[in-house]
Design a protein around this nucleic acid. Structure first.
Lengths: 246, 246
DNA sequence: CGCATATTTGATAGATTTCAATTTATGTGG
DNA sequence: CCACATAAATTGAAATCTATCAAATATGCG
């Protein structure tokens, strides 16, 4: 049933940008197969690997990583329950980037052959997944801006703000959400040093903005967080369900 | 005829990942309308604007920009002749990000209503454009890694290497290509200061790696450039034309 | 020729990294 | 439930890289 609720999360998100019929929803629900667990700190797929399935995150935290020839690693995206981390796989035969399990993670696999069949039958589902990749890419560009233009404190703050919104955790000015990333992971995601992440996090905690502890992000003052981050959630909001193909 | 050759460039690129029939190619060719010129240093579309058309770059240089609340601007992608800078517009009703003409640019517009009709008629074209957005997003993630992990010299070098490959300009160890960006633009694209771009460019020139002059990038030593940049063109290569839908 | 834009330079301040060590958590087997 | 092993978080001091500010040259264009 956890697998089911993750699928529901995904469909709710999708329906913010794409209008679906009951039939299409049922078609999509038929795809999510057995849920499968991936140990922490392992690559689920590596760039270049042939892929014959895609998946949906049920629990845990995945990261899309890009390795640099000098041995450094950049996290280019995080994926949380209800995300399809690898919609690319629906259209590409080999993995475009590496997917890494940051914490113990459960994913529901979807066979590409099944996906193809459903997309052929319901072209609007293809349209929906296409929009998901577009949104994923907009988020990636926002990350580029975050890393390129903001300095340490704002950069970290922005990441926490984005995750809060994507998880639908923003309920009041003070709240918390599960975010099982280590400070080293945050460093890889923000292009900072673990040491500097540590110090910056301490500053944010001292200022009563936020706090990260044993996998839990505690947002102590959302308004201040938004301000420190220079955060504008516009790039995450889609409230106009379309239907162009099919 | 220039408009035509840009469309050809695009189709050649597309056919590296998606197999198209003559009929589909003809269908796509019918889309590119009147070519239209955009003055240098103007926003062609701004984030949030309603969009009813997409376009193909015929000549010049476009940038996708993300503005930060503190007034800074990040260039998240460059688009050159033969690119569709805004495939997003085929699926989204309002502009997902701002498109800015870096130099005087000519684009061929394509009406969304026409695009929709052609995509409905030839689903494989939708598949092709979908792949284009995927590749765009992979490039964006590579930029994230570039900005997050590399230091100034490698960062600039990587940008020049990418543009060289995307333009198909790499013919031997020494070559040149048109790249009408100012040092300030490079700064916005790499998350550096214009002053630091200037100094880094001087270093690259002094080392006989490359040189940028009046809109021309002169690559003096490609092998060294690749080495300095830590450049691996894997994320730009697609040599296995697919056809899954339609 | 002369304005406007782009590039270049110098000197200084500041942010972030680096390196190495220490402390604190976390998990596991006995 | 403690003891140990391992991973994660924390600290300090110094080295680097990059930003900042302000001014001087170039360069292109009408």
């Amino acid at each position: 049933m956890l697998r089911f609720s993750a699928t529901r999360l995904f469909l709710d998100k999708v329906q913010r940008h794409t209008r679906l019929t009951e039939e299409e929803i049922t078609g999509f629900l038929s795809l999510a197969g057995q849920s499968h667990s991936v140990p922490a700190d392992t690559d689920m797929v590596r760039r270049g690997d042939p892929v014959s399935s895609t998946c949906l995150v049920v629990e845990g935290l995945l990261a899309r990583t890009v390795d640099t020839s000098s041995g450094h690693r950049q996290i280019a995206a995080f994926y949380v329950p209800g995300d399809m981390p690898d919609v690319h796989a629906a259209m590409m035969t080999s993995a475009t980037t590496t997917l890494h399990a940051v914490s113990p993670t459960r994913v529901a696999r979807m066979q590409r052959s099944d996906v193809d069949a459903v997309l052929r039958k319901f072209p609007v589902l293809a349209e929906a997944l296409w929009r998901e990749t577009i949104i994923d890419s907009i988020i990636a560009m926002e990350w580029t801006a975050n890393i390129g233009q903001r300095q340490a404190k704002a950069r970290l703050a922005h990441l926490f703000a984005e995750m809060a919104v994507r998880l639908g955790a923003v309920t009041s000015n003070s709240f918390e959400y599960r975010f099982p990333a280590t400070q080293e992971n945050l460093a890889e995601a923000t292009g900072m040093t673990p040491v500097h992440v540590n110090r910056t996090l301490q500053a944010l905690r001292a200022e009563g903005v936020l706090d990260l502890n044993s996998g839990m992000a505690h947002i102590r003052d959302w308004r201040r967080l938004v301000e420190v981050a220079g955060f504008d959630d516009g790039y995450l909001r889609y409230e106009d369900p379309q239907r162009l193909l099919g």
